[in-house]
Simulated scan of single mutants.
Amino acid sequence: MKRLLVALCIASTLTACSVNINKSKPQPQQSTSSGQQQTSGSFLKSINLASGATVVVEEGRLEPRSIGSVTVKLYRDLNVGDFAGGVSFTRDGTILKAVLIENGSDKQKLSITTVTAGSGNYQASQLICIKGDSIPLC
């Protein structure tokens, strides 16, 4: 009887260990040195401007990846949260890249490229003109 009880205890302990070993680990947040992050499949990137300001580009967090909005926020100083302005626009697809195509001390131009979902993989670009604290679509 004692052997049976010991065998049951050992079997239940080993079973519990095997369940814990096979648990999937949560995926860590990935980021690159350019400030781009992929969190839960959404696009998020910060870009430092020659003027000292920072632009943050992101897809809507609770939206589907294939359609939704893009938000571009301008911060005089991102470290203290000195928000200057922002702009949002619709997107059909996911953000492929966001790059500065002009980075002067008084005027900057940002290009945001999206790619549609599905077999077409059509790309579209939207330009954002930044001058001082103004951040309109070009």
Rank of each mutant, 00 (worst) to 15 (best):
M1N: 07
L4Y: 12
L4D: 13
V6Y: 07
V6W: 05
A7D: 12
A7C: 12
L8S: 12
L8H: 05
I10G: 02
I10E: 00
S12E: 01
S12H: 06
T13W: 02
L14H: 01
A16W: 03
C17P: 04
S18R: 01
S18G: 04
V19S: 05
N20H: 03
N20C: 05
N22L: 11
N22H: 07
S24D: 07
K25I: 06
P26T: 10
P26M: 06
Q27R: 12
Q27Y: 08
P28R: 06
P28H: 09
Q29A: 15
Q29N: 10
Q30Y: 05
Q30D: 01
Q30F: 07
Q30W: 07
Q30P: 08
T32N: 11
T32V: 10
T32G: 13
S33R: 15
Q36I: 01
Q37H: 08
Q37F: 08
Q38L: 14
Q38Y: 12
T39I: 14
S40L: 09
S40N: 14
G41F: 06
G41L: 02
S42K: 15
S42Q: 10
L44Q: 09
K45R: 12
N48P: 08
L49V: 06
S51A: 09
G52L: 14
A53D: 15
V55S: 04
V56F: 09
V57N: 03
R61E: 11
E63M: 10
R65K: 12
R65T: 10
S66W: 12
I67W: 15
G68Y: 10
G68M: 12
S69Y: 04
V70Y: 03
L74H: 09
L74F: 10
L74P: 04
R76H: 12
D77Y: 00
N79C: 00
V80G: 03
F83L: 15
G85F: 08
G86F: 04
F89I: 02
R91G: 00
I95H: 11
L96G: 01
V99P: 09
N103A: 02
G104R: 05
G104S: 13
D106L: 10
K107R: 11
K107E: 08
K107H: 10
S111I: 04
I112R: 05
I112G: 03
T113A: 04
T113G: 07
T114S: 09
T114A: 03
V115L: 07
A117Y: 15
A117W: 13
N121F: 08
Y122C: 08
A124M: 08
Q126Y: 02
L127N: 00
I128Y: 05
C129R: 11
C129V: 11
I130N: 00
G132L: 02
G132V: 03
S134L: 15
I135S: 08
L137W: 05
L137I: 13
